[in-house]
């Protein structure tokens, strides 16, 4: 392995990793917000909108991110909705992740017995306060393992961003392989950088899961 090559192109990978992470985080934030909204709509059984949400969830879960991105990036401009590649990446990731987050939160919400809400109501809390102070905090901690798994899944999905010509890690690796034929070095750095991004999140997820499983509230 040519270490000189690795050090020479390290900054390129760093830049790419920052881009990958930035869009990844933006997309994940969109996904969480979208997921909470969709989960609340389904949990609250809001008429009509609830149907739209289920259609969205099925569409999002049963199609690949790459195709979603192509449609947003190349298809939508044809009917006058243009985005730049970075915004497209974040929106696409958010569109994909929203449904996964919604399912995670909804299954958390469903584990909270309705009588918990009633006991909060009986204290005079308004429905929104019941949600905010009693239901959501419990649901979120129940959904935490699924939540972390989704975050890892979404960070992995960022690897397709190069398809809409974002200069992410995949793009950089492919570029270097094409230009200099340094396949081993390029792939090695690719793996290392993905490990740097994903390993801490994965370990954190496991830590949280263990804590929740063996401890729960009160330790």
């Amino acid at each position: 392995m040519n270490t000189e090559f690795i050090f020479k192109y390290l900054p390129l990978y760093e830049k790419a990793a920052v881009l990958t992470l930035r869009i990844g985080v933006e997309g994940i934030i969109i996904a969480i917000l979208l997921g909470i909204i969709c989960a609340l709509i389904q949990y609250g059984k809001v008429p009509i909108i609830r149907r739209i949400v289920s259609v969205y969830i099925e569409l999002s879960r049963n199609t690949p991110l790459l195709v979603q991105l192509f449609f947003i990036y190349y298809g939508l401009p044809k009917i006058g909705i243009s985005t730049n590649a970075e915004v497209c990446g974040a929106i696409g990731l958010g569109f994909l992740g929203g449904s996964y987050m919604a399912e995670a939160i909804r299954s958390g919400l469903e584990t909270i017995e309705p009588i918990q809400a009633e006991s909060a109501l009986s204290l005079g809390l308004k429905p929104a306060q019941v949600m905010r102070y009693v239901i959501l905090p419990q649901a979120v901690s129940v959904s935490m393992p699924a939540f972390m798994a989704n975050i890892i899944f979404l960070l992995k999905e960022t690897s397709v961003f190069s398809a809409i010509s974002l200069m992410d890690l995949m793009f950089t690796a492919k570029d270097l392989i094409g230009l200099y034929y340094k396949t081993t070095e390029s792939l090695f750095m690719l793996v290392v950088f993905y490990l740097i991004i994903l390993l801490p999140v994965s370990l954190l997820g496991r830590f949280i899961e263990r804590r929740l499983r063996y401890a729960g509230f009160g330790t």
Binding site: I115, Q116, E118, S119, A120, S122, L123, V134, P137, Q138, S141, G216, F217
Partner: peptide
Amino acid sequence: KIGMVFQSYELFPH
């Protein structure tokens, strides 16, 4: 103005 106590306590576990 109405306090209610349930059979299953319903304290908030978190």
